Amino acid sequence: MNLMSMLIFSFILALALFIINLFMPNKPDINKLSPYECGFDPFADARTPMSIQFFLVAILFILFDLEIALLLPIPWSMNTNPPNMTMSMTTALLVLLTLGLAYEWSQGGLEWAE
């Protein structure tokens, strides 16, 4: 199967699933509309606003978790690319992330109490 036929097949399949979804009946009931908390009744309203600091810390965690994933292949890159280029790219990545963390810290995004 060549690339064009796979693209056409994927588009037709996605379009067919979308059309089927449009004509399916929507029957909400009390169980579908209630928030699920491990089988227990909810303790509070599920739509209460959360603190923005929680989201900032979560985004920072994901960002630095991805940094580790980007830094893991460096030893293999040292064997295939010139070491100067590998080290300069690694240093650029670390400097960029450090500047972003410093900016976040200076703006008070890591402070829990205001």
Score class of each variant (00 low, 15 high):
1 M>P: 13
2 N>L: 00
2 N>S: 00
4 M>Q: 15
4 M>R: 15
6 M>Y: 00
6 M>Q: 13
7 L>T: 09
7 L>K: 13
9 F>H: 10
9 F>V: 11
12 I>Q: 10
12 I>L: 15
12 I>N: 14
12 I>W: 05
13 L>K: 04
14 A>R: 05
14 A>C: 14
14 A>W: 04
16 A>Y: 04
16 A>K: 05
17 L>H: 03
20 I>Q: 04
20 I>E: 02
20 I>A: 09
22 L>Q: 15
24 M>I: 02
24 M>G: 05
26 N>P: 00
30 I>C: 09
31 N>D: 15
32 K>T: 08
32 K>I: 05
32 K>V: 04
32 K>S: 12
33 L>G: 03
34 S>R: 13
34 S>P: 01
37 E>G: 03
37 E>P: 00
38 C>W: 04
38 C>S: 13
40 F>E: 15
40 F>R: 13
41 D>T: 08
42 P>C: 01
45 D>S: 07
45 D>H: 03
46 A>S: 12
48 T>C: 09
48 T>Q: 14
49 P>L: 01
51 S>L: 09
53 Q>R: 11
54 F>L: 15
54 F>T: 07
56 L>M: 14
57 V>A: 10
58 A>E: 14
59 I>N: 07
63 L>F: 06
63 L>S: 10
64 F>C: 07
65 D>M: 13
67 E>M: 09
70 L>D: 12
70 L>S: 11
74 I>D: 01
75 P>D: 01
76 W>Q: 04
78 M>Y: 05
78 M>Q: 10
79 N>G: 12
79 N>Y: 02
82 P>M: 02
82 P>A: 04
83 P>H: 04
84 N>D: 09
85 M>C: 05
86 T>H: 06
87 M>I: 11
87 M>K: 10
89 M>D: 08
89 M>Q: 07
91 T>F: 06
92 A>K: 09
94 L>F: 02
95 V>P: 07
96 L>K: 08
98 T>V: 10
98 T>P: 04
99 L>Y: 03
99 L>P: 02
100 G>Q: 04
101 L>A: 08
102 A>L: 14
108 G>R: 02
109 G>M: 01
111 E>K: 13
112 W>G: 06
112 W>M: 12
112 W>E: 11
114 E>Y: 03
